[in-house]
Design a protein around this nucleic acid. Sequence first.
DNA 1: GCTACGATGACCT
DNA 2: GGTCATCGTAGCA
Length: 203
Amino acid sequence: MPDSDCALSPLAPAFYAQPTLDLARALLGKTLVRRTAEGVTAGIIVETEAYVAAIDPAAHAYRGQTPRNRSMFGPPGHAYVYRIYGMHVCLNVVTEPAGQAAAVLIRAVEPTCGRELMRARRGAGVPDRDLCRGPGRLCQAFAITLALDGASLHGPELWVAETLGGAPPAAAASPRIGISHAADWPWRFYVPGNRYVSGRPWK
DNA sequence: GCTACGATGACCT
DNA sequence: GGTCATCGTAGCA
């Protein structure tokens, strides 16, 4: 698919006004698009996780605002990007009105455009399946850095679009991955059976 | 200051 | 299946 077909229009701001759990489901099947000077990369979102600080001990902002989680308190439709384990970064979509800290972590996408650009960033031998399977890998493939923390998700560098010819996919829920608090809450959403989902797709 | 520990991934067996 | 790299945050003294 040529890059021109990947530059889909950003979703309307109203899309991000949904409650966080609804938005985490609604993001499945949408296309994440990233444009840099190198070119365009895009992929279909197949796995998300919801974090709502007001009630969620696993959320970064559960204990209040800090310099790191500041953008989680901002208006919806923006990015919250943070560093984890000292070496990876993760991308979240900020949800809920400003002042309420909540976000949806994008855990995996199915690459649709710019695979060779992704491979240049991720490593020459990396198979398509592993380009964006996992939050850290996805950010590396899309060149998402801390510089994008707080950036608008309405372009021109990063946005979410309707998927061309895409019927809404099936959605399944499961506990979230890699957390120790509220570990049994079914706030992870994924497309069942999709090869590009991280972790154990059936769990 | 000091320390413990991650919303992970790569690589090994 | 397991180990470990690697360092910014946050919490506490």
